[in-house]
Amino acid sequence: MKSEQTLVDTRTLRTLTWLPVLMVIGAVIVLIVNYIPAWIIIAALEGIFVVAFTLITIAVNISYFESAYVCAKKKSDATKSQR
């Protein structure tokens, strides 16, 4: 039996497979959101947002302060060397 020829290529199949799977996942999320007591969802969302955005803020700040630090250091090094 030949096994080379498939009906669709693997990439297309994977994309097509996600189509109904995502629909069902979406439906399950809608159900969960509707049937879990509201305060639990609100608390969870609030928790996720607080944690996620705190982390992002920290990341952004570290990055910018680091750049500022590097810039300032370069400047001071340059001044020192000029002296």
């Binding site: 009906l7 693997t10 497979t17």
Partner: peptide
């Protein structure tokens, strides 16, 4: 889709394909 996924069981080349291929088939 399950039929198409099942076909890939027999057209599989060892070492090819992603790790989650069985996971998607299981979901289906």
């Amino acid at each position: 889709l399950l039929f198409l996924n099942s076909l890939e069981i027999f057209t599989y080349q060892p070492g090819s394909g992603s790790r989650i291929r069985w996971f998607l088939t299981a979901l289906l």
